[in-house]
Amino acid sequence: MPEKSMRDAINECLHQEMERDENVIVLGEDVAGGMGSPGGPEAIGGVFSLTAGLFTKYGEQRVIDTPISESAIVGAAAGAALAGLRPVAEIMFTDFMGLCLDPVYNQGAKFKYMFGGKAKTPMVIRTTMGAGMSAAAQHSQTNYAWLTSIPGVKCAVPSNAYDAKGLLTSAIRGEDPVMYFEHKMLYMAACEVPDESYTVPFGKGNLTREGSDVTIVAFARMVHLANEAADELVAEGISCEVIDPRTTSPLDEELILESVQQTGRLVVVDESNPRCSMASDIAGIVASQAFDYLDAPIKLVTPPHTPIPFAPNLEYAYLPSKDRIKQEVQQVMEAL
C-alpha cells in the first residue's frame, strides 16, 4: 500500500468526494490557491495546500474562494447544507472559530432539532489546530473541547493520514455538522493509505499500542508522543495501552472503560488547556464509571492554563512531551 502524508490523504479525499458527488462543494479563504496573485488560481495552492488541484478540476462554481470573513464562510456553508449541498468549509486556523461560532453552535447544530428532524445539515468545517511551530497564542490553539461540548456537532481529531482520509470521507457523507480538526504538525506525517475511498466511523477509537499496566488516552499529535513514551517504557517493564479515540464527539467511552478496567490506571494526554478539557472529561467519565477498577489516581498531561507562548523554548515547555508522559506513567505505577 502506498505511503501518503496526511496532507495528501486529505487532498485525495476531497478530490474523490467531489468526483463522487456533485453536491460536494469547497469554500474558504484561498481554497483556489493563488487567486489574486500574479499566477492566478492554483499558482500557489492554498496556505497549507490542502485544496490543491480542486479549482482547476471542478471550477469556481464548486470551489468557492471567499472573502476574509469566517462568519460568511460558515454561514454560507450552513445555508448550503440546509438547501441540499454538502459543503466542506475551511477555516484556516481554528483560533478564528470565535468569529463564526453562531452558524455552528446555534444554527447548524440545532436545525435538525428545531425543525422536527426534517432539516439536515451535512456541513463539514475543516480547520487547522495545534502548537509547535511558534505561531503564538492566536494561531496555535486546540479548542476541540469547546466544540465537543455542543450537542449536535460531531468532532474529529485524526492522528494519522489513514484516519484523516477515512474520517473526512465519513464526515462528508454524513448528515450532521462536523468539526474536522487537522493538526498542523501532522501534515507531513505519512503512513499507508489506500488509493481507493473508505470510511472510518465516528465514535470508534483505535488501540495504537496494547498493554496491561496503564491506559493512555491521547488525541491527534499527542497520540504519537504517547506511542513513543509507551515504546520506551517497555524497557522499564511498564506495559502501556494507548487509545486514540479519533473522534471526540461521539467519544468511544466504551473502549476507554474496557481498557481501564483491565489496566487499572489512566493517563490522559491532551494538547488543549486543562480546564473543561477532553482530559478532564475523560477523567470524569472513568472516575464515575470505573472507580472500582482504578489502582491509582488519574493523571492528566496537558499544557498549563495559559495562552500559548511565542518563544520556542517556552512553547516547548508549555506543550506535553514524551518525557512528561513517561513521568506521569511512572508515577501512577508507583501509586498505591
Partner: peptide, 10 residues
C-alpha cells in the same frame, strides 16, 4: 487495525 504511524515523522 488502521495504519498508524508511531512517530510524528511518520
Amino acid at each position: 487495525g488502521s495504519a498508524v504511524p508511531s512517530s510524528s515523522n511518520g
